[in-house]
Amino acid sequence: MLVLEKNALTDEIEKLVLKYGTSRSSLLPILQDIQREHRYISDFAQQEVARLLDIHPVEVNSVISFYAFLNTTPKGKNIVRLCQTISCDFQGKKAVAQAIERELGISFGQTTKDNKITLEYANCLGMCDQGPALLVNDKVYSHLTPEKAVQIISEIK
């Protein structure tokens, strides 16, 4: 990372700490904002959060590793999460999954070469009455067919 980028990131994290406060219970909201902005929480970001909240960097790392929606290595600009739980499974998840994989040329767990999309599975999204369902970042889509899913994926910027 360039020095300038580091400074900018430090500024950004300082602002978050001002917004949420320095108590330990601010840790998750701070990490979630960094994740939203950068799509991952770099080693440097972890160190800075640790320093500003006065906790050990190992602690920060251990918290991040616990949560599926936080990660320490870069992901694509958009995260697509297809529900893999039984109600969606029985409503045609597999065909949807295969259509998306074919279209993007990647498998679940991978990121497209242009870094645009990371493809993942998620557990029940609370849309079981309208499955199969998926999330694109924080937006939810339901009643998927292979065709509709590919359409949604192709509209991701």
Binding site: T85, I86, S87, N123, C124, G126, M127, C128, D129
Partner: peptide, 11 residues
């Protein structure tokens, strides 16, 4: 936190 598979009434 409604995460139990098959639950969506809180939604």
């Amino acid at each position: 936190d409604e995460g139990e598979p098959g639950t969506f009434k809180d939604r």
